[in-house]
Design a protein around this nucleic acid. Structure first.
Lengths: 346, 346
DNA sequence: GTTAGCACTCAACGAGTGCGAGTGCTAACA
DNA sequence: TGTTAGCACTCGCACTCGTTGAGTGCTAAC
């Protein structure tokens, strides 16, 4: 079914690339100029490609536009990865060089960079909880009945949460509980912190059990909450593309973007290092989603991605995501190794 | 200039309210139905109102639409505050009852509530730094050369930042520095933390001065960063309104919303408890901005607001903001008094 | 297999038209 | 003096209809 002749492939590629840049149905004459063939010949080929499901005609006397199948074929077989220009690379590096320390800021910078370079909507998920290890847990007295729990992880990610304790607790007692918590969780996955955990606390000080439970359940729910978080940038860019001239389409797309947890789920769903989902494959209708992974110490941390029209500059997007992903990975790798964070004035 | 007759006021009010709900230029016949007057009489009055600058005509044979001056007059003199319905009040209370502990979540909930109830874009600024007092500053060792600084404030707001120390520092030393930091800053405004501070540290341990400087400058830059932050919800809602059917208008508006720091500035600019800025007054062109203040312990903390078309349901928006503002104030007041944060499962 | 030629299709554009909501003005009325 | 009825006028909007042009499919010839 998929044994296209070499010429068919070339023609298909030419059509797709023309359509991606022009957003107009492409006709046989346009293509014939790049080939030493007449428009009639191209027409015949196009007709065949249409029969095979690679092309579609909006109406009889318009040119052809690529189908989702065509994009799929293009991404898998035809496309060459574009290399980023020097200014683009510099742009990416420039924010890397800042060495901002907070996970949140690194990621929101990444989101901005991606959307700036690609002109599409960017999506960045924070490091996923399941792959993160506890470095330490600290309890800090705030007042007799309230403490702050600070959870530090090996990725430099932090959670700090105030917790109301079931009874007044002295700083010393907190201190000893801190130690206990660290003994229990340091070096382990944060997912091991869950509310119903029947830790071997009883043996130590039975009275503290309830406090432990409170702390764990609060931490767990905080981490749970964290899951649906996602950074989105460049929504306005979307409206610049042809396919969103219809206000209603634009609106429903924006609405979708506001459902952060759904986006997060969809983006995180893919486990491949780098993935392209086109049209129906996304479960979102007429958009494409390209995602890449950033990682540290061999563990995948989170996803960066782009949402755009199916008529997307896949080559460009892929290389931007690849580059930004690598950069992020470097940053996090450094964190993991040395916690070597510095802050520069802006 | 502004001595409108009672009847003129009534007519103006009727026109404004009709236009707010219909978005269509309103004609004399429509209005005459609500008054025991003929359309011709209304026309005469309308003509006068137009001369006075309260009404505008898109073109000769269309009805009239209110000018910005008219909205101003409406808000200042004609409008009655609408009372929220029971379900609306419950909706606001329901999220209050959750008693979520983190400042960030309380605020983003507020933003969501406002935009849900008003159908406009909501804006919430976090408690402004200048009015916040340091409760405590804690240094936590992470590894020999890195520490985590946790800043707790009286509003329950927290900042935690990793800091790379200029040299290795033992936990004990950190501990003593913690104490010193608290001695210096506890109970004072966070704005007193600034990088060039020549604190009376020399006397204590000259060697630690550099570390202090590092910590202060990092904290200061974090807080500085915080300034431009702002939570925005419901951008997609905007596209539902008539005035944004033009994609380009919609896009430039969305672009504006993405410039968080600018929005933050504009929203924070107003010092009044509650304020309505209409059209040109906003400096943003054809939109209106309504803001209210939330506060605790007599101090204004931050702003909540709504951005919408000048044709906005001012009465509804004002009462929603008023209510949400009060609710937020209660939540923060509680924080200030007792740090009484509880976390419930969702 | 390729190409020239030709009839055909159909969206897009623009001019022309009728409609209707709404106005301003005038003259008459209370 | 304020109100009203009547009427001519304006002008956006929706609709129709012919024209245009890009593009197709098909056929016959090379």
């Amino acid at each position: 079914m998929d044994d296209l002749s070499k010429r068919q492939k070339q023609i298909l590629q030419a059509i797709i690339e023309d359509y991606i840049s022009s957003a107009m149905p492409v006709g046989s004459r346009t293509i014939s100029k790049s080939f030493a063939l007449s428009s009639a010949t191209i027409r015949n080929e196009m007709s065949d490609l249409e029969d095979l499901g690679y092309l579609e005609q909006p109406h009889t006397s318009a040119g052809r536009i690529p189908s989702e199948k065509a994009y799929r074929f293009y991404v898998d077989n035809l496309m060459k990865l574009s290399t980023l220009t020097a200014p683009e690379l510099n742009y990416i590096r420039s924010y890397y060089d800042k060495r901002i320390c907070q996970t949140g800021e690194v990621l929101s910078d990444a989101a901005r960079v991606i959307s700036d370079l690609t002109e599409y909507v960017s999506v960045v998920t924070p490091p996923k909880v399941s792959s993160v290890l506890v470095t330490s847990i600290q309890l800090m007295p705030i007042n007799p009945s309230t403490a702050m729990v600070v959870l530090v992880t090996d990725t430099g990610m932090m959670q700090s949460t105030p917790i109301v304790l079931p009874r007044n607790v002295s700083p010393d007692e907190l201190e000893s509980m801190s130690r206990l918590l660290n003994k229990m969780f340091a070096g382990r996955s944060v997912t091991e912190i869950h509310p119903q955990a029947q830790y071997a606390v009883e043996s130590e000080i039975a009275d503290q059990k309830q406090i432990f439970d409170t702390i764990c359940s609060v931490l767990a729910s905080r981490l749970e909450n964290q899951k649906g978080k996602v950074l989105i940038q460049g929504a306005s860019k979307m409206l610049a593309h042809q396919e969103f001239t219809d206000v209603n389409k634009a609106r429903s797309f924006l609405q979708l973007l506001e459902e952060n947890s759904r986006i997060s789920e969809i983006v995180s769903a893919e486990s491949d290092e780098i993935s392209v989902r086109i049209g129906q494959e996304t479960g979102l209708g007429d958009v494409s989603i390209v995602t890449a992974t950033y990682s540290a110490g061999g563990k995948d941390l989170g996803k960066i991605g782009v949402i755009g029209p199916t008529r997307m500059q896949y080559d460009k997007v892929l290389s931007v995501l690849d580059q930004v992903g690598k950069t992020l990975s470097e940053i996090f790798a450094e964190n993991v190794k040395t916690e070597d964070d510095t802050v520069e004035e802006e």
